[in-house]
Design a protein around this nucleic acid. Sequence first.
DNA 1: TCTTCTTACGCTCGGCGTAAGTATC
DNA 2: GATACTTACGCCGAGCGTAAGAAGA
Lengths: 299, 299
Amino acid sequence: MDPHLLRTFVTVARLASFSGAARELGYTQSAVSQHIAALEGDLGLPLLARRPVAPTRAGERLLEHARPLLLRLDAARADLTRMAAAPAGDLTLAAAPLAVHPDTLAALPATRVTLRVLPRDEIPAALAAGTADLGIVDGLAAPNDPLRLPDVAPLTATRVAEAPLAVHLPAGHPLAHRPGLRLGDLIDARWLDAPAAGLPLDRLRAAHGTPGFRPALRYDGTDVRTLTALAAAGHGLTLLPATIPPAPGATAVPLTEPRLVHRTELLRTGEPAGPAATVAAALTTPPQSARVGHPARRG
Amino acid sequence: MDPHLLRTFVTVARLASFSGAARELGYTQSAVSQHIAALEGDLGLPLLARRPVAPTRAGERLLEHARPLLLRLDAARADLTRMAAAPAGDLTLAAAPLAVHPDTLAALPATRVTLRVLPRDEIPAALAAGTADLGIVDGLAAPNDPLRLPDVAPLTATRVAEAPLAVHLPAGHPLAHRPGLRLGDLIDARWLDAPAAGLPLDRLRAAHGTPGFRPALRYDGTDVRTLTALAAAGHGLTLLPATIPPAPGATAVPLTEPRLVHRTELLRTGEPAGPAATVAAALTTPPQSARVGHPARRG
DNA sequence: TCTTCTTACGCTCGGCGTAAGTATC
DNA sequence: GATACTTACGCCGAGCGTAAGAAGA
């Protein structure tokens, strides 16, 4: 269960080739073969079928363990070496598209800050890898509930804001003139599938406890204006924080049921220091802090 | 970043002693010293202060990474070796106290099942370690929201049931005759702190977004009847699923605000097989399934 | 001075590469 | 017979223990 062996195993499984993995990792074919043999011997299970190379059931299972394990291992190393590199003075902030909001932008100092907009899922990894010093993530949540975040490293999350939600519909839509909408009214509609820029449809399904919310057009970019424009053009509905204005030709109708909010949280690794601390303080109204990324996180 | 080195580091930090760690791990003092030196050299950071032995800031940070990492590594090994040990025929089910409900018990076959009641936090680890074949966990959640679970291994969670909530108060309590209660009415009350048997107070604070819910008596056991008895005796309030009858001398008043439910989920590792599959099927109404324990879990 | 961590040094064994072997297409 | 994984074997270095050294109580 040496990480080197696991890394080799994951690579072999991904490339479905021993020799390919050897090339990629800078080993000889022989070494890769020995790695896999060592793992299989250690666990007492065949992990890979040869010719063609494909994981066995046990191998599949090991992959599910190994991938997040290696991710966390890399994150740990990156986090620590970054600590050694010391405060650089400049600050990089990784933000989810919907988390970029006038209020948050106002809290930033004018200079020495780099703002990077990333899909929300990649933000914890960016923090863990040291690509960013602070992160702003967002998501759907019950009021005052913390967000659920991928667990790649020990991160501290602090509430920044919560906003009500609204559904963007083209002006001609039959429901466009309602004062408010329930999610249940919209299960059968076609929805824009924009997990990077907008809110993932899975979260809607989970919130309502049904399948449905069928995807229409998919958009993988991170541009929110594109998303509102697509909604205005009738390519599908989208649920956004009420702070986002609808594009011309569209209406934003408040969501009344269930009681969900669009929540944004500030994410940081360990204790913030230097310029990160000031920005973090500016972004967060008193506390609402909870540690995430740990079994004992609700302690 | 070899796991052996990490394990040594964690042990040294825990015992605050190189020689103690050496004894516990079966190394010589010298080897432990070399392990720590190797880690510090690799990361370029001092991790431990000597004399007295205590982690530095970087060391603290590494501990936060290393502990869950080693936990997952052990879980992976245990999971795989258990896979090798093959289906034993007998079935062990690890359940959180509040998850033991007549309905769930009715779904169990009469024989060849061992039921172990554990604190809810230990159940994922028990599954990962192979101490149990299936788990039943519970918690507070918004309706149709999945539970948040510690992330020690790739586990599959399936909804079993959701129940409304009720506050148990002694019969003489001023609020005991209300038809329903809001959580906000009870912030300043004294609460039973029983994280193993009942619901952790932290979850109440998170749900209501305030501190408060001050702990009165703490109870660390897993016996629900003890908990209801303590509430009846006036040692503090407690929030329980409405399916749990109050003890004599207490009343259970439904919780109306916020809209939370007591949710129970079935937990299993990988694909269920053998007797575990039948029990799993009996416990779960159609699907409501979501994978947990993975960065990509909301994919 | 005693305890505890560090450093020096030699040995062993794990793990890599080279090269020969074997199985599958 | 070509390709791709396995096995044999020798070499090097990582990592352990023994033992001597240094530093704090």
